[in-house]
C-alpha cells in the first residue's frame, strides 16, 4: 500500500489520534493487512507512540499483521452454531487446510478465522467463504464446499 493512500486515509480522519482505530480499519479493509511501515507512518502522523499502535493492532480481532490468503474462511463459533456442531466443521476445515484459526496457509490460498454469530443461526452451523454463507454444514458438506475453491 503506498504512502500517499495512507496519508489520504489519515487526512480523511483529520489526523485525529482518537480516530486511530478507524484509520487502521480503513487500511485493513483496503489492503487486507497492516504492514509495519503503515503502522510507523500512522504513529508518526498522529503523534501516537508506536506501543499504542502495536497494542491496538494486536488487541482487536479485525486486524492482521500478515498478508491474508486468497480466500477467507470464517467459521461461526457462536453459541447456536456450537450446540449444533460447529466444532466438527472447524475440525474438518483444519484437517483439510492444515491451518488453525488466525493462520494462512503457505500457498496463500486460505485464511481461517472463527467468528461469533453471523446472524444466520437458523442455518447453523454456518461457514462463510469470501462473504458467501454456507449453512447446515456437517463434515461431508464442508469438504464438498472447500473443493470449489482454488
Amino acid at each position: 500500500m503506498d504512502k500517499e493512500r495512507i496519508d489520504q486515509i489519515i487526512d480523511k480522519h483529520h489526523s485525529d489520534p482518537s480516530s486511530l482505530i478507524q484509520i487502521l480499519l480503513d487500511i485493513q479493509a483496503e489492503h487486507h493487512w497492516l504492514p509495519k511501515e503503515a503502522l510507523e507512518q500512522i504513529s508518526e502522523r498522529l503523534q501516537v507512540p508506536m506501543t499504542r499502535v502495536q497494542h491496538i493492532a494486536t488487541f482487536y480481532k479485525a486486524f492482521s499483521l500478515v498478508p491474508k490468503g486468497r480466500h477467507q474462511i470464517h467459521i461461526c463459533m457462536g453459541t447456536a452454531c456450537h450446540v449444533r456442531g460447529a466444532s466438527r466443521v472447524l475440525d474438518t476445515v483444519e484437517g483439510l487446510t492444515g491451518i488453525k484459526p488466525g493462520e494462512t496457509d503457505l500457498d496463500l490460498k486460505f485464511s481461517l478465522e472463527t467468528v461469533n454469530c453471523l446472524g444466520c443461526c437458523a442455518l447453523g452451523p454456518v461457514l462463510e467463504i469470501d462473504g458467501k454463507t454456507h449453512g447446515k454444514m456437517a463434515p461431508v458438506q464442508t469438504a464438498d464446499v472447500l473443493k470449489n475453491y482454488d
Binding site: L118, G119, C120, C121, A122, L123, T133, G135
Partner: peptide, 8 residues
Amino acid sequence: SGSACHAS
C-alpha cells in the same frame, strides 16, 4: 432483506 435472509 436482513442479514439472515441474504444468506438464504
